[in-house]
Nucleic acid binder design. Structure first.
Length: 478
RNA sequence: CGGGGUGUGGCUCAGUUUGGUAGAGCGCUACGUUCGGGACGUAGAGGCCGCGUGUUCGAAUCACGUCACCCCGACCA
């Protein structure tokens, strides 16, 4: 039961979702604002989540043959301009370095907004033969995009991410890698972050600047808005032609490589907050919880309580669980609320009464359930519960997503879905940019993706009534 | 970049209308009593009132400028 003071601590999500989000980000101590506009200090609690994301995602990449490397944070102006669509897409939001050591530079450098051009420049030097392919590299770094309006994790001027860049001998290989990486992303979101996603393709209007095709994983936040959570792009040979990346094939002819890129960012932390969080604070899936279990001793000054609590701590630590103990002299009630705010998946209460009975009390963050557990069973029970919580959080998020996904066959239904409700709306589309533009102007709604799992809801476009080509997920986006 | 809002101890804010010695609650420090859902007592520490210029005998308060942050839109991951 939520105590009055606890509710007052953060704005409720029903009252003001944006403020609720900001409150959580601050009160769970994930970030601080800094004196650099639009750039945040990612605090230890926030960065630890990012490290867990990095470690697990990186391991998944490596299973598919990805190698990590690093390229400069600066891009010469001439390099950025090599590919026309790409530069048009990014030029408006890049930051420029015009001086070095007090003297003007002969050529200004932009701070990378993304590194396609640098990887192209690099691959041009290392790819000569079909034997040099494929190149499958990734870098973990930060990028800078001069956003006008910023929000912690969701939109900042500098953000952390990974960007994978590959070069392949054939269009088929490139397409295969693009799809493969999107599947890695979907797998990661669903199994590690417990966030269900829609996999699909972006429309021409929404695809990445310079890409032939952009695939995306789209997630639904608790307020019914969509969040693009990861993208994978197939560039075809467009960049290769612009940069002259060629190799000699087995038949002794010169051919252009086919390239891909794919990225996920610290925005994922925003997604975790907005998918799982509640009015008591953050709710972390066990797999990305820096602390999975917090032990809270009750009446800790009483003989033997702290000893027993520390014994528990050791047992669980040895079992490989990320566990900590809160033995500060705050009251238990305060500690309960604080650990809930921080999103710790599970807490263990242990006091004199428990010790007498050879047990302790486990409380789940995800559903508040209290469970008596014999001290002798603690290790196996905690392990089992962490798995259960991870799974239940995914199921809860999926139930919410499904309950907020609507079907619209007519424009009337479509408009109603967005004015009276909020969430994903599935509707048929003719494939024309004009209909996409009209829907956006009218309802501030964008096409999120053309899902790989297509359904036929009707024969005609929801907007113009002409024959439909694709079923599209629409939504209001972050 | 357009619209709206806010800047006063670490946090939330009062004080600004009508210029006159900088306030409260929470938090923090020390000690003691507490402890199964945000405890209490006593004693303390802590503030170029976002920044700049101007008006004035005197500015947190008035004027002009500027910066930052939050929210909504447009743009993006």
């Amino acid at each position: 039961m939520a105590d009055k003071k606890m509710v007052e601590a953060i704005t409720s999500m029903e009252e003001d979702f944006a403020q609720w989000y900001t409150d959580i980000v601050k009160k769970a101590e994930l970030i601080d604002y800094t004196s650099v506009k639009g750039c945040m200090a990612i605090k230890p609690a926030g960065y630890a989540i990012w490290e867990l994301i990095q470690n697990q995602l990186d391991a998944m990449f490596k299973e598919t043959g990805v190698k990590n490397m690093y390229l400069p944070m600066f891009i010469p102006e001439s390099l950025l301009q090599m590919e026309k669509d790409h530069v048009e897409g990014f030029a408006p939001e890049v930051a420029w370095v015009t001086q070095g050591g007090g003297a003007p530079l002969t050529e200004k450098l932009c701070v990378r907004p993304t590194s396609e051009t640098l990887f192209c420049d690099y691959y041009k030097g290392v790819v000569h033969s079909y034997r040099d392919l494929p190149q499958v590299c990734n870098q973990w770094c930060s990028v800078v995009r001069w956003e006008k309006e910023t929000r912690p994790f969701l939109r900042s001027r500098e953000f952390l991410w990974q960007e994978g860049h590959t070069a392949h001998a054939t269009a088929e290989d490139a397409e295969k890698r693009t799809v493969q990486m999107l599947n890695v992303y979907a797998d990661f979101l669903e199994n590690v972050l417990a966030i269900p996603v829609i996999k699909g393709q972006k429309t021409e209007k929404e695809k990445f600047a310079g890409a032939e095709a952009t695939y995306t994983v789209e997630a639904l936040m608790h307020d019914g808005k969509a969040l693009q959570s990861g993208t994978s792009h197939n560039f075809g040979d467009g960049f290769a032609k612009a940069f002259g990346i060629q190799y000699t094939d087995k038949d002794n002819t010169l051919k252009y490589v086919h390239q891909t890129s794919w990225g996920m960012t610290t925005r994922l932390i925003g997604a975790v907050i907005m998918v799982h969080g509640d009015n008591s604070g953050l709710k972390l899936p066990p797999k990305v919880a820096p602390t999975q279990v917090m032990i809270i001793p009750i009446q800790q000054k009483k003989e033997g309580v702290l000893d027993k609590a520390n014994e528990l701590l050791d047992t669980l630590k040895k079992a490989g669980i990320r566990v900590d103990i809160d033995d500060t002299d705050k009251t238990p009630g305060f500690k309960f609320s604080e650990q809930e705010m921080r999103g710790i998946p599970m807490r263990i209460e242990i006091g004199p009464k428990d010790i007498e009975n050879g047990k302790c009390v486990i409380v789940r963050r995800d559903n508040g359930e209290k469970i008596d557990v014999a001290l002798s069973d603690i290790e196996s029970k905690v392990k089992e519960l962490l798995v259960t919580i991870q799974k239940d959080m995914y199921e809860a998020a999926k139930a919410h997503r499904d309950a907020h996904t609507y079907v619209a066959v007519t424009m009337d239904e479509f408009e109603k879905a967005f004015t009276e409700k909020s969430g994903f709306v599935k509707a048929m589309w003719c494939g024309d940019r004009a209909c996409e533009d009209e829907i956006k102007d009218k309802l501030a709604v964008t096409s999120r993706c053309m899902p790989w799992e297509q359904e036929k809801l009707s024969d005609v476009c929801v907007c113009c009534g002409k024959p439909a080509k694709k079923m599209v997920y629409w939504g209001k986006a972050y």
